[in-house]
Simulated scan of single mutants.
Amino acid sequence: MEFLYPYFLISLLFLPLLWIVGTKNGDDLRRRFTPELYNKMVAKGGGLGRRVRLGVLLVSAAFGIVALSRPVIERGEIKVERQTVDLVVAFDISRSMFADDVYPNRFELAKRKFFDLLEDLNDARVGVIGFSSRAFLVAPLTRDFASVKYLVEHMGLDFVSLRGTDMFTPLEVTENLLHQSDKKAVLIFTDGGDKKEFSKEIAYARAHGIKVFIYAIGTEKGGVMKSDGGIVRDSVGNIVITRLNPAVKVLAEETGGVYMRYSLSSGDMKQLAEAIRSRLKATKTKESLLKDREELFYYPLMVAIALFLAAYASLPKRDAKRAAGEMK
């Protein structure tokens, strides 16, 4: 048997001192007062004697200290194998992603879909970037999804300082983040931008073994772009309408990824997670060692609670008639 927190056992050394102090105080009271006054001061009745009760409380404290020290029986180590998926998620944060042809806008819908995706990718390490004409890192590869959600939740118009959508930049960042991985993948939430031809991006992705997954958000009808100053207009004052660019589909198909159009269904992210896993199934398996332990702390803890309750229940109660007589 071993103790995980043996330093708590040092507290046992103070219990004899508490016994000496507790019994000494009782003897001092008896010496300082007459027997008649001492008997009136000390409650009488059934239950354990004062010294016995103090001893029970100290023994209860001893068992509580042993429980805090977490006694365990070591049974060896267990090898746990776990398949991991490394995925970079790129958010298009160009101004077109704030169009209102989907509710509440394209960018906010992308964030909600990303949160749904994390629920189905609990075996993955996820990194997040934002991009428009340039890219920046939001979160490095991590399994701390709570922190990732917080960072993504607070992405907004404040991050948009550049115009345009350069689909090449998320590929470069993905290569930098996953250059040691044998399988590389990037999921891009985007409306496709304005580019009609992606041969440069396809060549780069193939050369570096990057599979590109596209989740396209937008409609053919298009929507109005909004900014802090209101509706976006062109140089002659006309309202700018931005539409989904279907040409970006070839970027996913030619790199071994998946192209998926946005949906209001909550099940599409589960399908996307399964598609990502199926295309990255060769991701290397990592092994970790876990210690097999049998916890024993609850045994001394139960004894400590039982002794404490026994000591508390044995507190003497003054006789009601005697107390009434003393008041007279």
Results as ranks from 00 to 15, higher is better:
residue 1 M to T: 07
residue 2 E to K: 06
residue 2 E to V: 04
residue 3 F to R: 14
residue 4 L to A: 15
residue 4 L to G: 15
residue 5 Y to T: 02
residue 5 Y to V: 04
residue 6 P to I: 14
residue 10 I to F: 04
residue 12 L to N: 15
residue 12 L to Y: 13
residue 14 F to A: 15
residue 20 I to V: 10
residue 20 I to Y: 13
residue 21 V to H: 05
residue 25 N to Y: 12
residue 28 D to L: 12
residue 29 L to K: 14
residue 32 R to Y: 02
residue 35 P to T: 13
residue 37 L to H: 14
residue 38 Y to G: 07
residue 41 M to E: 10
residue 43 A to P: 13
residue 44 K to V: 10
residue 45 G to K: 05
residue 46 G to I: 09
residue 51 R to M: 01
residue 54 L to G: 10
residue 60 S to C: 09
residue 60 S to K: 10
residue 62 A to R: 04
residue 66 V to K: 11
residue 67 A to C: 02
residue 68 L to K: 10
residue 69 S to L: 08
residue 70 R to F: 06
residue 74 E to S: 04
residue 74 E to Q: 01
residue 78 I to G: 01
residue 79 K to V: 03
residue 79 K to I: 01
residue 80 V to E: 06
residue 81 E to H: 07
residue 82 R to E: 13
residue 86 D to Q: 06
residue 87 L to N: 00
residue 92 D to V: 02
residue 93 I to V: 15
residue 94 S to C: 11
residue 94 S to G: 13
residue 96 S to G: 08
residue 97 M to A: 06
residue 99 A to L: 03
residue 100 D to V: 09
residue 101 D to Q: 06
residue 101 D to W: 03
residue 103 Y to Q: 10
residue 104 P to A: 02
residue 110 A to P: 07
residue 113 K to I: 03
residue 113 K to E: 05
residue 116 D to R: 02
residue 117 L to V: 00
residue 121 L to M: 15
residue 121 L to Y: 10
residue 126 V to W: 08
residue 128 V to L: 02
residue 132 S to R: 08
residue 132 S to D: 09
residue 137 L to D: 07
residue 138 V to D: 13
residue 138 V to N: 11
residue 141 L to N: 15
residue 142 T to E: 13
residue 144 D to L: 02
residue 144 D to E: 07
residue 152 V to A: 00
residue 152 V to R: 01
residue 155 M to K: 05
residue 156 G to K: 07
residue 157 L to M: 15
residue 157 L to F: 14
residue 158 D to A: 14
residue 158 D to Q: 12
residue 158 D to K: 11
residue 164 G to D: 09
residue 167 M to V: 13
residue 169 T to F: 09
residue 170 P to G: 00
residue 172 E to Y: 04
residue 173 V to K: 07
residue 174 T to V: 01
residue 183 K to R: 15
residue 184 K to M: 12
residue 186 V to S: 06
residue 186 V to G: 04
residue 189 F to T: 03
residue 189 F to L: 01
residue 200 K to H: 08
residue 202 I to F: 05
residue 203 A to Y: 10
residue 205 A to L: 12
residue 208 H to V: 03
residue 211 K to D: 06
residue 216 A to C: 14
residue 220 E to A: 13
residue 226 K to P: 05
residue 226 K to C: 06
residue 227 S to Q: 11
residue 229 G to H: 02
residue 231 I to G: 03
residue 236 V to A: 11
residue 251 L to E: 09
residue 252 A to S: 15
residue 253 E to M: 00
residue 254 E to R: 06
residue 254 E to C: 04
residue 255 T to S: 12
residue 259 Y to A: 04
residue 262 Y to L: 03
residue 264 L to M: 12
residue 268 D to R: 02
residue 272 L to N: 01
residue 273 A to D: 13
residue 274 E to K: 14
residue 275 A to P: 06
residue 276 I to C: 00
residue 277 R to C: 09
residue 279 R to T: 12
residue 282 A to Q: 11
residue 282 A to T: 10
residue 283 T to W: 07
residue 284 K to N: 03
residue 284 K to C: 02
residue 287 E to A: 11
residue 296 L to C: 14
residue 298 Y to S: 15
residue 301 L to Q: 00
residue 304 A to V: 10
residue 305 I to T: 10
residue 307 L to P: 04
residue 307 L to D: 04
residue 310 A to Q: 11
residue 316 P to V: 06
residue 316 P to Q: 06
residue 317 K to F: 03
residue 320 A to I: 11
residue 320 A to W: 09
residue 321 K to P: 03
residue 322 R to V: 05
residue 323 A to Y: 08
residue 323 A to W: 12
residue 324 A to E: 12
residue 325 G to H: 10
residue 325 G to K: 12
residue 326 E to I: 09
residue 328 K to L: 04
